[in-house]
């Protein structure tokens, strides 16, 4: 272990590329256990979604940190909203969920929507009727929230599902809705020079 040698090499060496591939079934089983763990400790659907959201936030903060270092070398980060979201959609999503998210859309300036037609955390999940509109995508929403918060773009992030339209056989789409705080939007405007 060279890390403990005290010569300061830890800060100078670049971060390894990391292993980007894990069997999807291994991930699915761990995630399944995570949901079951929290389910036994909450009273209702809302609490369960919050618990998943919080678990995801921790993942998001760490994944973003690691990816920022890997991709940019020096750990340089985006200070503008759109590049950050694109970075999330492509690089982070690919590393956390195995594929880039399908689309990124803007609504009313301060609302952004990230959608994934086959989100890994929802791929194998059938929610029983007694849990109503529970969406395990809350975990992904938490991941996004963790990224945005640690990058300095506080936002409210929620997940909801939508059924595919007729003729589309992709199944359920998971949508992650981000509503940014006022200060973020104002800062963006200022930077735009308006």
């Amino acid at each position: 272990m060279r890390r403990g040698s005290g010569s300061g090499t830890t800060t100078r060496t670049t971060l390894g590329k990391g292993k980007s591939e894990v069997a999807s079934s291994a991930f699915a089983l761990v995630f399944s256990e995570l949901v079951q763990y929290h389910r036994a400790r909450v009273r209702d659907v809302g609490e369960l979604e919050r618990a998943l959201d919080e678990a995801g936030e921790m993942v998001g903060r760490r994944a973003f940190e690691a990816q920022a270092f890997r991709e940019r070398g020096s750990g340089k980060r985006d200070h503008r909203l759109l590049p950050l979201l694109q970075f999330t959609q492509s690089v982070v999503w690919k590393n956390v969920f195995g594929r880039a998210a399908d689309s990124l859309e803007v609504y009313d300036d301060d609302e952004y929507l990230l959608s994934d037609k086959d989100l890994l955390v929802n791929r194998f999940v059938s929610v029983p009727k007694d849990l109503g509109d529970l969406n395990c995508g809350s975990f992904a929403a938490g991941v996004v929230r963790g990224i945005l918060c640690s990058a300095g773009f506080p936002a409210k992030v929620t997940a909801y599902s939508s059924e595919a339209g007729p003729g589309d056989e992709s199944g359920r789409t998971t949508n992650i809705l981000m509503k940014f705080e006022k200060e973020v939007i104002e800062r963006e405007r200022r930077l735009d020079g308006k």
Partner: peptide
């Protein structure tokens, strides 16, 4: 069965399978 029942957090082992994806 493996993918949509065993990997589904709401499926209890050895119990009847009621998963729409399965």
């Amino acid at each position: 069965f493996y993918a949509y029942a065993l990997q589904n957090p709401f499926y209890e082992m050895e119990m009847p399978v009621r998963c729409e994806l399965f």
